[in-house]
Each structure stands twice: as structure tokens, then as C-alpha cells.
């Protein structure tokens, strides 16, 4: 049994017939060839598949495809606009807040949603906010500092 769903990915409309047991992660990766969201555990534990759904960060591996109807999804591929990186992407580069890069898209999406909700979180709020994303390489400090950097230098998407 397949379900028809109409939704938006990175502001572009998508219409698909999806199997009931397929997850958002595999709709993105297999059906739409958007492989930025990664599969690290398929169980909602590592956060590598984090994307933004209607403004909230979600684990792509825990959202079933039939739920997507009418939703707005943003993936890492949608963060940069016309080749211009988002402030968080820039900050991740400047702080070397990535090593192997497998968890990076998930962190960027969680952090983007975090700053969309509260542009100026405290360090403690950042640490808590990204604690659902696992990274084995960096030790997190550079990631926290990259997010702090954006939080303290941006207002409404503009550098202050």
C-alpha cells in the first residue's frame, strides 16, 4: 500500500507515492537523492539524520513518510542560498567544527532550528540543545563555539 503525499523540500514542492513503512530519511535519500541527511543508527539515537520539519528539528529516521503530507522540510542541502553559505555553515568552517563530517549535516540542522527559535541562547542551552546529536571526532567544543559565534554576531540573519 502506497500513500500519496504532497510536501515541500527546501521550498520546492514534491509529490510522491510512498510506502507506509518508509521513513522521511529514506524518502530524502532514496527517492529524492538528497543524501546530506545520514543514517547513523536508524533509531533516533544519534541525530545524524536531523532535518527541519515545519520549523522543528526531527530525526528523519523516526518520521514515517505518510506523515509528510503538507509539511515543509529543510535539509542541509537547503541551508545555502545561491551558493552563499548560511552563517552557521560559515562558522562551522571557521571553527573547524567538523572532522569526518558524517554528523555535520545533523548538527547544522539542529543548530539552525535552535537559533531560529532563540537567536541568542546561552552556552548551557546550546550544549543541551545539541545533545541529541552524537559526534565521535570533535569533542563538541568547536561545534558549541561555532554556534555561539553565530548567536553573538547575528541578528535576524544579518551580521551585527
Amino acid at each position: 500500500m502506497k500513500y500519496k503525499v504532497s510536501f515541500f523540500v527546501n521550498e520546492e514542492p514534491v509529490e510522491l507515492y510512498v510506502p507506509a513503512n518508509m521513513t522521511l530519511l529514506y524518502v530524502l535519500r532514496d527517492m529524492l537523492n538528497l543524501t546530506g541527511a545520514k543514517d547513523g543508527c536508524s533509531a533516533g539515537e544519534c541525530g545524524a539524520c536531523t532535518v527541519i520539519m515545519d520549523g522543528k528539528p526531527v530525526n528523519g529516521c523516526l518520521v514515517l513518510a505518510p506523515e509528510l503530507d503538507g509539511k515543509h522540510i529543510t535539509t542541509v542541502e537547503g541551508l545555502s542560498k545561491n551558493g552563499k553559505l548560511s552563517p552557521l555553515q560559515e562558522a562551522f568552517i571557521a571553527h573547524a567544527a567538523l572532522q569526518c563530517g558524517f554528523c555535520t549535516p545533523g548538527f547544522l540542522m539542529t543548530a539552525t532550528a535552535l537559533l531560529d527559535e532563540d537567536p541568542h541562547p546561552t552556552r548551557e542551552q546550546i550544549m543541551k540543545g545539541i545533545s541529541g546529536n552524537l559526534c565521535r571526532c570533535t569533542g563538541y567544543k568547536s561545534i558549541i563555539e561555532a554556534i555561539e559565534d553565530v548567536a553573538s554576531h547575528y541578528e535576524g540573519g544579518k551580521r551585527i
Binding site: 535519500r29 532514496d30 537523492n33 538528497l34 543524501t35 546530506g36 541527511a37 545520514k38 543514517d39 535539509t75 542541509v76 542541502e77 541551508l79 545555502s80 553559505l85 555553515q89 562551522f92 568552517i93 571557521a94 573547524a96 567538523l98 563530517g101 558524517f102 555535520t104 549535516p105 547544522l108
Partner: peptide
């Protein structure tokens, strides 16, 4: 800056699981 960082922050770095 890391020379691999642009592709890693844009999701365009290709891991084996991404290869179809």
C-alpha cells in the same frame, strides 16, 4: 581552514552509503 569543510557543511561530501 580545513580543505574538506565546504563539502562537509553543504552535505555534498560523498560517503559510501550515499553512492547509488
Amino acid at each position: 581552514q580545513r580543505v574538506d569543510s565546504y563539502k562537509k557543511v553543504t552535505g555534498s561530501a560523498t560517503f559510501v552509503s550515499d553512492v547509488k
